[in-house]
Design a protein around this nucleic acid. Structure first.
Length: 472
RNA sequence: GGUCCCAUCGUCUAGCGGUUAGGACACCGGCCUUUCACGUCGGUAACAGGGGUUCAAGUCCCCUUGGGAUCACCA
């Protein structure tokens, strides 16, 4: 019984985008579910376009999502000599041949074919050449069998068949001696003993020629699962135009990794009517059979809903440590204010992102905030200073400032004046937070503490007095 | 253009021959309420079209239409 082995093989030509992340996630889940190995391989055969920054960005994205790998990262650029050997093998067995056609000649032929509405396929000029000098510049082509067809059963798409005559004699080694992608993936997946290849469905057309290569090389053909692509709201390929496509950008926008994972996995995969999945649950329930065949539109609204769900139900301690950096970014010194965990608890139900939570937490730490004059205007009836004073005084008498006692305290003030709670709570909120959008007033006061609440009331009194003076 | 893939509410999807076609996001309305939110209750909304097969088709087959992928000395 051979080991189950899966891999994610990005090319380092940019950051980890949501499409790649989902492919990685599916591979990871399948590996974990099957108790197999998950391998990370960097496809950097295109030396010109590959960068170390991209490698770093991809690794960062994987780590943030929690997609740990068991082997790698392997770099294809480290294995050029191996690919060379396999090319030689094919050559000596007559399964590949040297082609001396120049790129210019090929371009011309292709154009001509296109013009005459024929297939732009290599015409096989060099396929049966004999006795040619090897030192002339050349590429190496794979000798695709004529006739017959290549069939495979895709785990997601079902049976797919291609006539071999549709296939080109593809180049497996460039004139500079470097191998090409379709050859390298096969050699790598074969030698790494990959059992299931999960990748984007833009690779289906490559699959038959890859299968032919496996066979020519004498390796078993892995199972294939081609996942549909992710589209933007206008149903075109997802791009920056549609908003952020980098997973790290979502972290920076205040998304939780579990929300992104949950969103991505449900985009294309489903398990009955269930929407929320923990990672453990996903490992248990994920199945390639349940992955849909059609492309899906990336829906930011649903992602944000999931994010707010995970914020709402998240552990306050953990959220507090996550929130810290977002606040620091806004110039807040967290140590100068109330306990961050307590702050988080008041904000969890009303924050869709960590950025939103940070914004909502600002007033706790700022003592020089401005007041919402428009909201305040409704209460400038001449009694506001007195009301603030009353609240302040009752706070001074209170020894223990928890939600319950504050509520009782406010109720008492309401009763003594025969007014409603909102007549007291609304203006008090402005005094304590500066505005109208904030957590429950009593929670705010509990977190702020007695002293700070009193100070804020006093500052508000001065401010209102100033306003009233101006009015006269 | 050739080849290949795809097709249920606006979106993600359930459905695997017999359902009042279900859920979720978004949207609209009610309730809750100390603001903003949360929550809660309810509502609008879909089987692309046409042929078959079958007692019975969203489900199976074919065609049409419409999307998409791919046809490099990129990956």
């Amino acid at each position: 019984m051979s080991e189950v082995r899966l891999r994610f093989a990005p090319s380092p030509t940019g950051y980890l985008h949501v499409g790649g992340a989902r492919t990685a996630l599916f591979n990871w889940l399948q590996a974990r579910k099957e108790k197999g190995r998950f391998i990370l391989r960097i496809e950097d055969t295109d030396v010109a376009r590959s960068t170390q920054e991209s490698v770093d960005a991809i690794l960062e994205g994987m780590k943030w999502l929690g997609l740990d790998w068991d082997e790698g990262p392997y770099y294809q650029s480290d294995n050029f000599h191996i690919y060379r050997e396999f090319v030689e093998k094919l050559l000596s067995e007559g399964k590949a041949y040297r082609c001396y056609c120049t790129a210019e000649e090929l371009d011309a032929k292709r154009e001509k074919a296109l013009k005459e509405k024929r297939k732009p396929k290599y015409d096989g000029t060099c396929r049966n050449l004999t006795g040619v000098l090897h030192d002339k510049p050349h590429v190496v082509r794979f000798k695709t069998p004529h006739g017959g067809s290549t069939v495979f059963d895709d785990i997601i798409k079902g049976r797919i068949a291609f006539s071999n005559d549709e296939l080109d004699d593809l180049i497996i080694q460039r004139s500079d001696g470097t191998p090409t992608y379709n050859f390298v993936v096969v050699v790598d997946d074969a030698t790494m003993r990959i059992t299931t290849v999960i990748r984007g469905d833009d690779h289906v057309n490559n699959t038959p020629r890859q299968i032919l290569l496996y066979e020519a090389l004498g390796y078993p053909v892995p199972r294939f699962a081609h996942v549909p692509m992710i589209l933007g709201s206008d149903k075109t390929r997802l791009s920056k135009r549609h908003g952020a496509t980098s997973v790290i950008a979502y972290r920076d926008m205040g998304y939780l990794p579990e929300a992104v994972v949950n969103y991505l996995v449900r985009l294309g995969w489903s398990y009955g009517d269930q929407e929320i999945f923990s990672t453990e649950e996903l490992i248990e329930k994920f199945s390639l059979d349940a992955v849909g065949r059609s492309a899906g539109v990336f829906n930011p609204d649903k992602l944000i809903w999931l994010n707010s769900h995970y914020i709402k139900t998240g552990d306050p301690e953990r959220l507090a440590t996550l929130l810290g950096p977002y606040l620091e970014q806004k110039g807040i010194d967290v140590s100068s204010g109330p306990n961050l965990v307590s702050v988080v608890k008041t904000l969890q139900d009303r924050s869709k992102t960590m950025i939103e939570m940070a914004d909502g937490a600002l007033f706790y730490y700022k003592t020089d905030f401005e007041y919402d004059d428009k909201a305040l205007a409704k209460f400038l009836n001449g009694n506001l200073v007195q009301l603030y004073g009353e609240i302040r005084d009752s706070l001074k008498e209170a020894d223990n400032l928890d939600h319950g006692t504050i509520e009782a305290l406010f109720a008492k003030i309401c009763a003594s004046h025969g007014i409603k709670m909102k007549d007291v709570a609304l203006p008090a909120r402005i005094a304590l937070t500066g505005g109208t959008a904030a957590p429950g007033l009593f929670d705010v006061m509990e977190v702020l503490g007695c002293r700070e609440s009193i100070q804020r009331l006093e500052r508000a009194i001065e401010y209102v007095q100033e306003l009233e003076r101006e009015r006269q």
